[in-house]
Amino acid sequence: MIKVEDIHKSFGDEEILKGISTTFDKGKTNLIIGQSGSGKTVMLKCLLGLFKPEKGRIYYEESAIQDMDDDQQRALREDIGMLFQGGALFDSMNIEENVMFPLRMFSKQKKSEMLERVNEVLSRVNLENVNKKFPAEISGGMQKRVSIARAIVNRPKYLFCDEPNSGLDPKTATLIDNLIQEITHEYDITTVVVTHDMNSVMEIGEKVVLLKKGKLVWQGTNQEIFKTDNEDVTNFVYSSDLFKKIREVQIKEQ
């Protein structure tokens, strides 16, 4: 579980996060949603410790990240898996080396044991016979799956995903969303996904946090999001034609 208490983050005179408090539950896919510029990525980077908030506290279980020294933060990061928007695979390494990288850095396993684990996670993300290929030789969807494999290879307690299905076709995007949710349940980890994709909200939003101009304006589940009268939620959710039509159908049915 990750708990956030009243975090504020500014860049120069501009305050990006204005006192956000919430909890991200263990064993659930927690989604941070909002329009571009709402502070989602800044919030994610604060959670990861890449940005230091001026005010407020972030707790991983019982420990506040602000109270940790560099070594403790580094130890915490060994428990974190991250899926970046573009995959962030290392160009100079093949797929096998990319996935093995966290194991090589942090574990004392033999190479054969590491290889076994790499093949296990690659097969978990439905990738086979790609071990010796380089990131540039596989598709965007496959790169995302390799990135997920790399994120979970070290059995993390926390998984962060930044726009996991950006740039993917709808079918592959759904596949990635489902994979993230399955892994969250299977490994019983705390997953935080930053997205502005309503399909992701529908598919995997077990807890949804809506940010607007740096403030948390609503939180609930993907089921509740269609029932709430919160104006900010309806403005965000029904901004696309597809969801406007769904709304019209819902109103007619009522």
Binding site: L48, I80, F84
Partner: peptide, 17 residues
Amino acid sequence: GSMRVTEQIDALEVMGI
């Protein structure tokens, strides 16, 4: 620079490296 642009450096930092 390419590693910076493609978030590979962020990936290293997030891993605690």
